[in-house]
Write a protein that binds this DNA or RNA. Structure first.
Length: 590
RNA sequence: GCCGGCAUAGCUCAGUUGGCAGAGCAACUGACUUGUAAUCAGUAGGUCGUUGGUUCGAUUCCGACUGCCGGCUCCA
């Protein structure tokens, strides 16, 4: 589909969904005549509408509302656009406080604003549109109400909580079915489900929001860290390790005490206040300050895989994606202003290398000076221009998020697109002119004077744990061979094949390959089934024939069989894939 | 934190109006000795998340707490 067609289709769906949300509001008001309506926009994949109702909605209510909607769209009700005066509007929406507030806001923004309503049947709503021509254009079987949830009026926790009904609608029943199927498929990849099934990690009531990594999950975690470490070594990074608990005075100095206190954990040691680190920068700044630095040493690239704790609201915790403790693959580059550009360029290359290793595409976003920024506009302009120049020179497309930068500097965020098209923000590059000053960091320049270095914060995986979760969903649990905790499942057919199977496992182990031997008293079919469910990339089947000929037979994860293979040959093929860190499994072994 | 839902065996889940708690898989024992996604039989396994209350009696009804799930950004 070309872009124009895509936009047209998007617009058509938006009209459909927005119109359906009006129909839903009509249905809800028929059931609850005293209900108050708030807003009801079209959203990605559907729509919602917020209501204030006399009681909480139940799933039965949803079914009833849906049935009502399906009846409404069978009528010949045209959508009628009408422009109204502010006085008319206020009269029309008497008794609808949320609408009145919206009207007042619109007029406050622009006293001459044109207000409009859309009517269909006896329902009308303050609305800019656009809408369909007639409710008949909505296919009854293509409507589905999904769930009801709480939502603060205007997203503000200090304002009343409304009931939000989420629904979806498509141009046909078939499209609805396809969509629901996609949702089901996405659910099958849920890292929380796969993490449990594959014995990667767990969560315990004793530590909400703090993952427990099991043996296999830890293996992947370590692999990620060592993969990134290898590149850091190549790129001349230093790697530090700083304490988890640091004195309050440090956090006062860094500004975290003022800006980040609500998300921090505290403790008292020997009558003194300490905080558990929510970020690694202050610790690494202390490391920098342990000695005097010359301009000749710069840039200093100081990495740390630092475990940070942040107190997130209990209601937002979610698997590995939203946690209260995680390991940042953090680094701080201390450099001169002149070196900034080259360093950022190098970081973009770093990101590119890591993300393409896992087959991710990515999008870039540049966030600029926020309202409450620290430092002069001049220095911000320099920082923003530097980032822009680098992006242009690197031939990267990017989107600008005006005013979305950190209070200490602008940043570039990397959004990965996974195998089923979902976006995940992972990497970040942030320019910081504030911390070095606050901490009185210096280097001796060519002119024999003290200068303040520029600091670049960066993370590539972001959170190692979260990235692992993204990988689980991206690969649906089928990890590339180099990172799969169990690469090979060895399946002896009968007990008298165990000795040979053991020997095979020893040889694999000596070759650096990870295998598990299934010696349960089960039939081969049962063992294959389990190996398949465990998502083992390769299975080695060992029976009479293999023992007699000193060969192996392979079954790949997708069920292909390769018989009479020499073990050495197989090992070579595996080692090659591991070495190359291939994404796709070699299923031919030719 | 707030709104709504959920919490039963290691896992996935049943449990009818309140009356001694169930299945499948897994585990264990035994038999079977098997060629590309589940061999058969038997055994054991539960303070029904925690805690108060109502009741002769609570997994079931009511309250509190804890945890998990879906939301709380999409601006008429």
């Amino acid at each position: 589909m070309d872009n124009q067609k895509k936009d047209a289709r998007k617009l058509a769906l938006e009209k459909l969904r927005h119109s359906t949300s009006h129909v839903m509001a009509q249905a809800v008001l028929e059931i609850f005549p005293d209900g108050k309506v708030a807003i009801g926009p079209a959203i990605e994949n559907g729509f919602y509408y917020d209501f204030e109702l006399p009681r909480s909605l139940t799933p039965e209510d949803l079914a009833q509302i849906e049935a009502r909607m399906q009846a409404i769209v069978k009528n010949d009700f045209p959508f009628i656009y009408e422009e109204i005066s502010s006085a008319q509007a206020k009269k029309l929406f008497q008794g609808q406080p949320y609408k009145i507030e919206l009207i007042q806001d619109l007029l406050a923004k622009d006293p001459k604003a044109v207000l409009s309503i859309y009517k269909h049947s006896d329902f009308f709503d303050l609305c800019r549109g656009p809408h369909l021509e007639n409710v008949r254009q909505i296919q009854a079987p293509a409507i589905k109400l999904l769930h009801v949830s709480g939502a603060y009026w205007r997203g503000d926790e200090k304002r009343p909580m409304l009931q939000r009904i989420y629904g979806t609608v498509w141009s046909s029943k078939k499209e609805l079915k396809t969509y629901l199927h996609q949702v089901e498929e996405a659910k099958k990849r849920d890292h929380r489900k796969l993490g449990k099934e594959m014995d990667l990690f767990s969560f315990q009531e004793e530590a909400p929001g703090m993952p427990f990594f099991h043996h296999k999950g830890t293996f992947i975690w370590n692999s990620l860290v060592s993969y990134v470490t290898d590149i850091m070594v190549r790129k001349n990074y230093e790697i530090n390790k700083t304490p988890f608990i640091l004195n309050k005075s440090l956090w006062l100095q860094s500004g975290h005490w003022d800006h980040y206190k609500n998300n921090m954990y505290f403790t008292k040691i020997d009558e003194q206040d300490f905080a558990v680190k929510p970020m690694n920068c202050p610790g690494n700044i202390l490391v920098y300050k342990t000695k005097q630095h010359s301009y000749r040493e710069l840039p200093i690239r100081a990495g740390e895989f630092g475990l940070v704790h942040r107190h997130e609201l209990s209601g937002v915790l979610s698997g590995l994606f939203r946690v209260r403790c995680f390991t940042q693959d953090d680094a701080h580059v201390f450099c001169t202003k002149e070196q900034m550009k080259a360093e950022i360029k190098d970081l973009i290359d770093f990101m590119d290398e890591v993300y393409s290793r896992f087959g991710f595409q990515y999008k870039l976003e540049l966030s600029t000076r926020p309202e409450k920024a620290m430092g002069s506009k001049k220095i911000w302009d320099l920082a923003e221009d530097t980032l822009k120049e680098v992006l242009i020179e690197s031939k990267k497309k990017y989107k600008i998020n005006e005013g979305d930068g950190a209070f200490y500097g602008p940043k570039i965020d990397f959004h990965l697109t996974d195998a089923i098209g979902r976006d995940w923000q992972c990497g970040t590059i942030q320019l910081d002119f504030q911390m070095p000053e606050k901490f009185d960091m210096t280097y001796i320049g060519e002119d024999n004077q003290k200068h303040c270095p520029v600091m670049i914060h960066r993370a590539i995986l972001g959170s190692v744990e979260r990235f692992l979760g993204v990988l689980v969903e991206h690969f649906a649990g089928h990890f590339p061979l180099w990172i799969a905790p169990v690469q090979i499942k060895i399946i002896p057919i009968r007990e008298d094949h165990y000795a040979y199977a053991n020997k095979v496992q020893e040889i694999l182990k000596a070759a650096g390959l990870r295998s598990e031997l299934d010696v349960r008293d089960e039939r081969m079919q049962a063992k294959i089934r389990v190996a398949q469910l465990e998502k083992a990339p390769y299975m080695i089947i060992i029976g009479d024939k293999e023992v007699a000929e000193s060969k192996i037979s392979i079954r790949t994860k997708s069920g292909k069989n390769i018989n009479d293979l020499g073990l050495e040959n197989f090992i070579e093929k595996c080692q090659k894939q591991v070495q190359e860190k291939s994404i796709e499994l070699d299923e031919t072994l030719a």
